[in-house]
Simulated scan of single mutants.
Amino acid sequence: MSQQINLFNPIFLKKKRVFGAVPMLQALLVILLGALALGGYARARVGELEQRAAAGKLLLEQREARLAKVTAQFQPRLANPALAGQLANAELLLKSLRDAEAVLHNGRLGNTDGYAEYFRALARQNVGGLWLTGVSIVGAGHDIGVQGRAMQPTLIPNYIARLNAEKIMRGKTFASLRIERAMLEPAAPAPVAAPAAMPISAPLAKLAGVAAPAPADAAPAPPAATAKLAPFVEFSLQSSMPEAAK
């Protein structure tokens, strides 16, 4: 009978040391170098931030000094009662002007464009043998009066129709028309000179049996002048507006 005897003992094997002195020294050196690099970067970063903070502080001091200077130059003034009264008056005047403008734009006063367009319309309607001697416009053009002369009475209806065709005259009607034959004023007669005569005294005239002559400054009475009819007629037009438009 055979028997095997194992004489190997693991205790006698050479053990491998993982954390030896040299590796630990190398790791410590790496950690030390990393800490030194990180500290240098942190110091540089802190220095940069300190420079920015100093610059910001200097700028803030300059702004505060400027603000103090401006505040000293432009100190708040006390309210002036006179200026307050003037401001109140100006506001009242502005309100009244705005009210007047609103009234004008609302058309409560009628036509606010003036009378130029009426005269343009009268000038455009030019009829031969008819001319105007007077024009009257009341208020905002509600009532218009026209006076003139015409060589023939038949020209007047044509003139009225042409006036009614004007845009500015629409809505207006001539309620009254008066036509009459004009009279020419008689010319003053020329003075008649007294006949020349020898002066005769009153006693000599009595002896001669004649009447004593009238004084030299006594002129004979002029003949009575007669009026003549004019070759034209005079007319007068008066317009009227409907009550709803007034």
Rank of each mutant, 00 (worst) to 15 (best):
A194E: 05
A188V: 06
G145T: 07
N164K: 15
G171H: 04
A216V: 12
W131L: 07
Q62C: 07
V146F: 01
A216T: 05
G129K: 06
M151I: 09
A55F: 14
G128R: 10
K206C: 01
N164W: 01
A208G: 03
V70D: 09
K206D: 09
P153T: 13
A84F: 07
P23V: 12
T133W: 10
E101C: 05
G40M: 10
G56E: 10
E91T: 11
P215A: 13
K172R: 15
F8G: 06
A244H: 09
Y159S: 02
G129I: 02
Q26V: 14
V127A: 07
R162A: 14
K167M: 06
R45C: 06
A190P: 01
R124C: 04
K95C: 09
R120Y: 07
E61F: 02
R77K: 13
V146T: 02
E234D: 09
I31H: 09
L67E: 14
A55E: 15
T112Q: 04
P215G: 07
L163C: 01
S96C: 08
G107A: 10
M183E: 08
Y159P: 00
Q125A: 12
P10M: 11
V192S: 02
A90D: 14
E117L: 05
Y41K: 10
G134N: 14
G209Q: 04
Q51G: 11
V210A: 09
E185R: 10
F235H: 00
K246S: 06
K172D: 01
R108Q: 06
R98K: 12
A79F: 11
L184K: 10
Q75W: 04
V135F: 00
F19K: 15
F12V: 04
R108L: 14
F19S: 12
Q238Y: 03
I144V: 15
V210R: 07
R66W: 11
F174E: 02
K69H: 05
I160H: 00
S96A: 15
F232S: 02
L13T: 09
S201F: 07
A55M: 13
R181H: 12
P153W: 03
R178V: 10
E64L: 12
G85C: 03
L204Y: 05
I156R: 00
E185M: 08
V18Q: 14
Y41H: 05
K228I: 05
V146Q: 00
Y159G: 01
G128P: 00
N164L: 14
A225T: 12
E61V: 02
W131S: 05
T71K: 13
F74D: 08
F174K: 01
L25I: 13
E48M: 11
L60W: 09
G114N: 07
A44I: 14
E101Y: 02
P199L: 09
L67G: 11
A190F: 01
A27D: 14
S239G: 08
V138M: 06
A205K: 03
L78Q: 15
F74L: 15
R178A: 08
L33E: 12
G145H: 03
